[in-house]
């Protein structure tokens, strides 16, 4: 499956338009008028939302026009529209994003230290082709240096999970 630039443009324009709409709805609850002491709290978000919707519509139309032109160009024997993501890139990106997501979930449940050990070790092992013990070693070394820099030197507590208290680290 390949994603065309057209689809990406479309999706982005619709998303930013919805964001603008959300801004306008949120702002209209606060009042978006102009009183004698200047604008009400919702004034700026309301009009910024309106501008965002307008600009998104413009982008949407521009994407359609470009798409049609490209189609005509392709029909007359020109180059086909450039893909946004081909299959290979989409796969690579998909794996990376899935790993990112897993890292965030692991961090939220197990804490930053365990999360980053797992994530770094997994990447080095599965994607870098390093041996598992080495990969784990890199992960642990990273977590230990995080601990030293943040908690020992700068006294900033990072997010901890259920494992650290067992080791006597709070």
């Amino acid at each position: 499956m390949t994603v065309k630039v057209f689809h990406a443009e479309l999706g982005t324009a619709v998303t930013t338009g919805l964001l603008g709409l959300a801004g306008m709805i949120g702002a209209s609850e606060l009042g978006h008028g102009w009183t004698e002491s200047g604008p009400q709290p919702g004034y700026f978000p309301f009009y910024v939302g309106l501008i965002l919707i307008g600009a998104s519509l413009w982008n949407l139309v521009a994407a359609f026009l470009k798409h049609r032109a490209a189609h005509r160009h392709a029909a007359s024997g020109g180059e086909v529209e450039e893909p946004f993501l081909d299959r290979e890139r989409a796969r690579r990106l998909g794996v990376f994003i899935a790993a990112l997501l897993a890292f965030v979930v692991a961090t939220l449940t197990l804490g930053i230290y365990a999360g980053s050990i797992l994530y770094i070790a997994w990447s080095a092992w599965r994607q870098g082709g390093y041996r598992l013990p080495l990969a784990l070693g890199v992960g642990v070394a990273f977590a230990v240096s995080l601990y030293l820099i943040f908690e020992v030197i700068f006294k900033i507590p990072l997010l901890k999970g259920p494992i650290e208290p067992l080791l006597g680290i709070y």
Partner: peptide, 25 residues
């Protein structure tokens, strides 16, 4: 494959330290 994930981890750690909020992740 080594430094990339480390940068990712540092980005998330950095974002967390801004206000100690998991939502920021």
């Amino acid at each position: 494959t080594i430094i990339g994930p480390m940068i990712v981890a540092i980005c998330f750690v950095g974002a967390y330290t801004v206000s100690n909020a998991t939502f920021d992740l």
